[in-house]
Every structure is written in structure tokens, then in C-alpha cells.
Design a protein around this nucleic acid. Structure first.
Length: 574
DNA sequence: AGGGCTCCTG
DNA sequence: CAGGAGCCCT
């Protein structure tokens, strides 16, 4: 059915709050949900009490179920509603005595439109507000839960603050609790005891959840405040944002379920679209409106195992702050209160078993993710595909592991070690001179002869790479001169020698001893001559047709290493 | 899986 | 000389 003007008014005002949220005023909206107006403003019994009364005294007239919530009540406005109430004017609303519980126009079966969501949210907010705040709550048989309304001073201050704030903000929580079910209650005068029991149970459940929700809200606010303090701490923000979302989601789900139960039980919760707290609605709307729910689930950002493509996409993700997308998959069985209690007990990051939180971005607080906390972005070019390929892409249900966050650090470490306390040009020169003695130094030899180097995998690899490069040049020269000898018509291996006057030696010396300030050991000349012979012989018999023909030569040469003089062990050798 | 090596490329 | 790919070995 069409919405009456007042409906639209209410809904629009609700959207106004969402708009606020979208501009970062999420917290005020949230606070208003929980702490809302002065509780004393609700002079009537709680909605639950009304519902129960109605259930127990089903024979009464429909008027009995009308509510008058002086300060903040508005009507969900059905056809019979009075003229629209300016939701922006809380004073007008507060003074309006015409806030009847009205029939909710044909909500059943209607698609879940944003308007419906707004209305739904408003209704739940109203319920929660009344339940949480009304001093009459206790007067209506809540004495068995004396702790329900116990609040600490801080909460009172918040409530006061929010009340002040609310006076300046549009009102959108004013919704009746009536609706189709209300009318049904009017016609259905034969309520059974079973239904009463159910009502009682629901009532208790709602009260219990109200308490839990209040605690959750407190936690939420605490975390939120911490966020403000740690705004620069991306990692912390990240974690807390997820926590926010988890809490909100759990809250949202619980409210949904309870209200659904209430609604389906025939009680006068008007809509089948249970209202949700603003914060929750905000997140949901954000997801829906941006059509990114699915895509986000694939962009789980965690461990240093994140593929480059994943990181890239995360960087481009246009999430506004506090809009961290995530999926909160909880399968049915868990009781609503259990979820809430679990959240309270173990925190939002605990494992629910059936409850999975799937953050879509590593640092939720920085949706752009352009400013990835760790040096991921800056070092991306240093992250080799090979490394990344070894890291499995996080699955939809997977969580980002710490590993993912570490790979860049490893690379960073390499770079830093190299530039700072790592290998220096002096080390390179020393390594070259060592090559005159050993072509295949072991890692232990390297560590022994570079005592001033703080070894790690990177340093070791780099040193090994150096000697690999030395060998490469060495063998290239050998092959070149061997071929030259063949071209020159040298037929006998014995005719090939390597002396300090040889072209080959000069080339090698120029490469490893450029300054020529080091006396190359004779042994090196011998090894060089042997190597040249090996190449000459191999090429002479056309062994070079075999792709791996050099391997045999390498095998011979590697055995010709000699000990490096102890003088090389001192770091001040050069 | 990781280290070490060769080979290729820049 | 470094980076990367690919191979082999352990």
C-alpha cells in the first residue's frame, strides 16, 4: 500500500539520520538509539507491557492498544493517521497527542524497500528505547531483573548529552508498535494461555537482550572512543572497526530475530521488517547501495600472503571511512542471547564456531587502503610474484593471516640490511678477491669471512649471488678464450697456458681486482688454466652441443677451491 | 618447501 | 650486479 504522507515524513527523517551517518555521524545516531531521550518522558507503560496486556486482555477494545509516547513517539501512520508530523520538529511531535498505533499498510509481502527498512528500524528503536529507558519498565513487573536498568554515571551523561543533541536533530524513531497485528488482536479475542506464556517468554527475552545490547553499546562506544584516540594507528583502527561491525551485526541480528518472533507470535509489532539500529542499517545500506557485497567477500585482505592483484583491488576499493565491508555469517542455531553474550564475554574477534566474521579489508579504517599500514604498497615492487604465488589466496571464509603482513617486512629487512648493516662495496671487493681462492664458497665460509656482516637469509643469498655472478663471468671468459684458441688453430691443450701476461688473466684481474692492488695467487692461475683446458677440450669434441655440457666442467672446477687465507677473516682486512 | 645453482635479462 | 625463472637436491 502506499505510504501516507506521515509515513514518508517519518521515513525521510530516518534517512536524514542515515545521511548523517554517511557523513560520519554514526556515533550520535547510535547513541540516540540506545540512550535516547530522557526515559522519564515515557509516561506510559513499556510497549512490551502494552503488548502483554493486550494479549492477556484480548477482549478489550482496540483503543487499549494505542500508545501515547509524549516525547518521542510518532506514528507509523496508516490511513487513519492524522496529518503528517514534521519529523524534524521534535517539539511538535512530543506535544502531539495523536500518536496512535496505526495499522501498518500492507507491509506483508512487500519488497524490502529502503523505506521499509527505515520504518523497521524506527520501530525497533522505539521498542528498545522504551524498554531500556522507561522507568515504568520496572513498575511493570521487571523487578525480577533489577539490573536491567542499572546504569553507570557515564551512561547517564551520555543519555543527557544525547538528549541535548536530539533536541537539535530530527526525530525519526517515532513509530507506533501497532499495525496489522494490532487489528488482528482486536478481532482475535480468544488469546490462549499458550500465547500468554509465549508473550512472557518473549518479554523476558527482549529484556534480556536489551540488557545485553546496552552492554554492547557501551563496549561499542568505548572502542569508538579508543578509535578516536588511536586514529593514527591503522592497525588498531582496523581491528576496532571490525569489532564495531561485528557488534553491530550481532545486535542487528538479535533484534531482528526477537522482533520477528514477536511479530509472528501475533503480538503487535507492526512490521515484519524488524527495525535495526541506525548503525547497523547504515552498514547494510552501504553494502547494498554500493553493490559490493559479493566483490568484497573476495577481497579478504590479510596475511602477507595476499596476491598482488588482491592488494591492488583493495587499494582501489572506494570505501568511505567506517564502511569496512565484511560478512558476518552466522548460521542459525546459536541463540541470539548467546551470540550477544559471547560477544560480551570473549569479544568480537572470538570464534563463534558457527559465527564467522569475514573482514574484507585488512585495515578497515582506511577504506581506500591506499595507505596500507605496512609497507605493502611501497614495497610491492619488491615482492616477487614467486613469493606471492606461494601464498594461497584467502578464501571467502578465510581470515587474513599474519603471514601476509610479514612478507613485505621480509623484503624490507633485506633492503635495510643491504643498505645499512648489510653488504657494502667493501664487502663486494673482498668477495671478489676471495674468488681468487674459492669459486664455490659455502655459506659457512662466507659467514666466517664476513664476520662484520649480520647474516640473514637475504645477506647470505646476496653473497651467494655475488659468487654466482663471479663464476658466471669467469666461465664466460673461459669459454670465450677457449673458442678463441680453437679459432686460432691451437690443436694441443698443452699449448694453452694462463700466465699473468695472458689476455684471459688481465680480463679476470680487471674484473676481480680492478685496482690491481692485490697479488693474485698462483693457484688461481693454475685453476684458470685448467678451466680453460676443460672448455677447450669440451668444445673441441663438440660437447658444447649438449645443453648441459658445462656441468661437467663445473664439477671439475668446484673441486679446485683452496682455502681462503685467514687474513680475509678480519673485517678490517680491506 | 627451501636452498643453491645456472641461465637469461636488464 | 640484480632480478627472475627454472631446475636440482635435500
Amino acid at each position: 500500500m502506499n505510504l501516507s504522507p506521515s509515513d514518508q515524513s517519518v521515513h525521510n527523517s530516518s534517512e536524514g539520520c542515515l545521511e548523517d551517518d554517511k557523513h560520519g555521524v554514526l556515533l550520535p545516531c547510535l547513541r540516540r538509539n540506545i540512550y535516547n531521550e530522557p526515559l522519564s518522558s515515557y509516561s506510559n507503560s513499556s510497549i512490551i507491557s502494552q503488548l502483554l496486556r493486550k494479549s492477556m486482555h484480548g477482549k478489550r477494545a482496540l483503543d487499549e492498544s494505542h500508545f501515547y509516547l509524549p516525547n518521542s513517539t510518532a506514528t507509523d501512520s496508516g490511513q487513519e493517521d492524522r496529518s503528517s508530523v514534521s519529523s524534524k520538529d521534535s517539539t511538535a511531535e512530543a506535544s502531539s497527542p495523536n500518536c496512535h498505533i496505526s495499522t501498518r499498510c500492507g507491509t506483508e509481502g512487500e519488497p524490502l524497500t529502503p523505506d521499509h527498512l527505515q520504518a523497521k528500524r524506527a520501530r525497533v528503536e522505539n521498542i528498545i528505547r522504551v524498554m531500556a529507558g522507561s522507568p515504568n519498565n520496572r513498575a511493570h513487573g521487571d523487578s525480577e531483573r533489577p539490573d536491567v536498568d542499572s546504569r553507570d554515571p557515564r551512561e547517564s551523561r551520555e543519555a543527557y548529552r544525547e538528549n541535548k543533541r536530539k533536541q537539535r536533530l530530527p526525530q525519526h524513531q517515532e513509530h507506533s508498535i501497532g499495525g496489522p497485528a494490532n487489528r488482528k488482536a482486536q478481532g482475535d479475542r480468544d488469546e490462549t494461555n499458550t500465547k500468554e506464556d509465549e508473550c512472557h517468554k518473549l518479554k523476558e527475552q527482549l529484556h534480556s537482550m536489551q540488557k545485553l545490547m546496552r552492554q554492547l553499546q557501551e563496549k561499542f562506544l568505548q572502542v569508538y572512543k579508543q578509535d578516536d584516540a588511536d586514529l593514527d594507528d591503522k592497525a588498531t583502527g582496523t581491528t576496532d572497526s571490525v569489532g564495531h561491525l561485528e557488534l553491530s551485526r550481532a545486535l542487528n541480528d538479535c533484534v531482528d530475530r526477537v522482533l520477528t518472533k514477536v511479530s509472528s507470535s501475533g503480538l503487535d509489532v507492526p512490521s515484519q521488517h524488524p527495525t535495526k539500529p541506525h548503525s547497523l542499517e547504515y552498514y547494510e545500506n552501504s553494502e547494498a547501495h554500493q553493490d559490493q557485497t559479493e566483490a568484497l567477500s573476495l577481497v579478504v585482505r590479510k596475511p602477507v600472503t595476499t596476491p598482488l592483484s588482491s592488494v591492488t583491488s583493495a587499494v582501489k576499493r572506494p570505501y568511505p571511512v567506517h564502511q569496512t565491508p565484511f560478512h558476518f555469517n552466522y548460521s542459525a542455531p546459536l541463540h541470539d542471547s548467546q551470540i550477544l553474550e559471547h560477544l560480551l564475554k570473549y569479544g568480537p574477534h572470538s570464534n563463534f564456531g558457527a559465527l564467522h566474521c569475514i573482514p574484507h579489508s585488512m585495515d578497515g579504517t582506511s577504506p581506500d587502503s591506499v595507505d596500507l599500514p605496512w609497507d605493502t604498497i611501497a614495497l610491492r615492487s619488491k615482492v616477487t610474484p614467486g613469493h606471492l604465488s606461494h601464498h594461497p589466496r584467502p578464501s571467502a571464509l578465510g581470515t587474513v593471516t599474519v603471514d601476509t603482513l610479514c612478507l613485505p617486512h621480509v623484503k624490507l629487512e633485506c633492503g635495510e640490511m643491504q643498505n645499512m648493516e648489510g653488504l657494502t662495496p667493501s664487502h663486494l671487493k673482498k668477495a671478489k678477491l676471495m674468488f681468487f681462492y674459492t669459486r664455490y664458497p659455502s655459506s659457512n665460509v662466507l659467514k666466517t669471512f664476513f664476520p662484520d656482516v649480520k647474516f640473514n637469509r637475504c645477506i647470505t643469498s646476496q653473497l651467494i649471488k655475488w659468487f654466482s655472478n663471479f663464476r658466471e663471468f669467469y666461465y664466460i671468459q673461459m669459454e670465450k678464450f677457449a673458442r678463441q684458441a680453437i679459432v686460432d688453430g691451437i690443436s694441443e691443450v698443452k699449448d694453452i697456458t694462463v700466465s699473468r701476461d695472458s689476455e684471459l688473466f688481465r680480463a679476470l684481474n680487471m674484473h676481480y681486482n680492478k685496482a690491481n692492488d692485490f697479488h693474485v695467487p698462483d693457484k688461481f692461475l693454475e685453476v684458470a688454466e685448467i678451466t680453460l683446458h676443460e672448455f677447450y677440450k669440451a668444445i673441441s669434441v663438440a660437447k658444447d652441443s649438449d645443453p648441459s655440457w658445462k656441468k661437467a666442467i663445473y664439477k671439475v672446477i668446484c673441486k679446485l677451491d683452496s682455502d681462503v687465507p685467514d687474513e680475509f677473516k678480519t673485517s678490517s682486512y680491506l
